[in-house]
């Protein structure tokens, strides 16, 4: 399968990349790992005239702790770089685990977190855990930089608030007081499968009392979504099996899944109930896993 012709640029600086993106207009696409974009081009779902590669922007591959800010992950960090990052393994193993269960090893070596987010696939594995942890995106254009909560970034399947001349440069997990977090992906195979349901949670526990909780669901709505009513049921309350069941039921009514080849709406809703409960129990008992 061949690719159509396109013009290719490989800018050496972020400034050059932004300037190119502004100059070339909506016919230009940013090339990160390409694991999604090149497939779409092969299928003629997308025919960009220009690809702007971010490969030379080494500063976008770093994963660092920045004091007073949080964990900053460059948009060009690959899934395996995230999964193998000692910093993330120590602070948010849940993020490493989510990256580790995406696609397969070959794709994880190339596919980037920036691409995973910007493509806005409803079943993407990384957005839910980052939304649960309150992550912020750094978006850069020739007009400067803006910061947007990941939760507000998506507008529909394949659609986001990213302006045509903007680049996603990084994802920040701000310092927080969550005591645990996790992402459970439910797919039909252990590898190379899209999520039928993905549930990410982050909790702050004070002994058995839940002080804060965030539940982010993937693959069950046009965009990754928070189950805010379910979250509210937990905050300030002692955790019991009954409460977790009620929270799961609530999340299953809040989501808005479709029926497709991987599962029916009804099935997805029930799996949201089951996996919300399991994810909460895991994060409450085991920390960031």
């Amino acid at each position: 399968m061949n690719l159509p012709d396109f013009d290719y640029y490989i800018p050496a600086s972020l400034q050059d990349a932004c300037a190119l993106l502004a100059e070339k207009g909506p016919g230009a696409k940013v090339l990160a790992g390409g694991t999604d974009l090149l497939n779409k081009m092969k299928h003629e779902l997308m025919a960009p005239e220009v690809l702007i590669s971010l490969k030379k922007l080494d500063q976008l591959t770093s994963i660092d702790y920045v004091s007073g800010k949080g964990v900053v992950i460059g948009s060009m960090a690959t899934h395996n770089a995230i999964s193998n990052s000692s910093l993330l393994q120590e602070k948010y193993l849940s993020v490493c685990e989510a990256a580790q269960h995406m696609a397969n090893n070959q794709v994880r070596n190339v596919g980037t977190i920036g691409g995973n987010i910007v493509n806005a696939v409803p079943s993407a594995d990384l957005p839910p855990i980052f939304i649960a942890l309150g992550a912020l995106l750094t978006l850069v254009s020739t007009n400067g930089e803006r910061v947007m909560p990941l939760e507000e970034f998506f507008t529909g399947p394949g659609k986001t608030h990213l302006a045509p001349d903007e680049l996603l440069t990084g994802i920040v997990i701000p310092d927080n007081s969550f005591t645990g977090s996790t992402y459970i992906k439910f797919g039909l195979r252990r590898s190379g499968a899209l999520a039928v349901v993905g549930v990410a949670v982050a909790v702050e526990m004070d002994r058995n009392i839940c002080k804060d909780a965030r539940i982010a669901l993937g693959a069950v709505a046009p965009v990754p979504m928070r189950a805010k009513k379910a979250e509210a049921m937990m905050i300030g309350n002692a955790i019991t099996d009954e409460l977790l069941e009620q929270v799961g039921v609530c999340a299953s009514t809040e989501c808005n899944p479709i029926s497709d080849i991987r599962g029916s709406e009804e099935y997805r809703r029930d799996m949201v109930r089951v996996f919300t409960k399991r994810a909460l129990r895991k994060a409450i008992n085991n920390g960031h896993v």
Binding site: Y8, L31, G34, T35, L38, N39, Q106, V107, N109, V110
Partner: peptide, 13 residues
């Protein structure tokens, strides 16, 4: 040293 799928990597990359 890392496995990649050469069908979705551009030679220029």
């Amino acid at each position: 040293g890392k496995p990649v799928n050469s069908c979705i990597v551009l030679a220029v990359e």
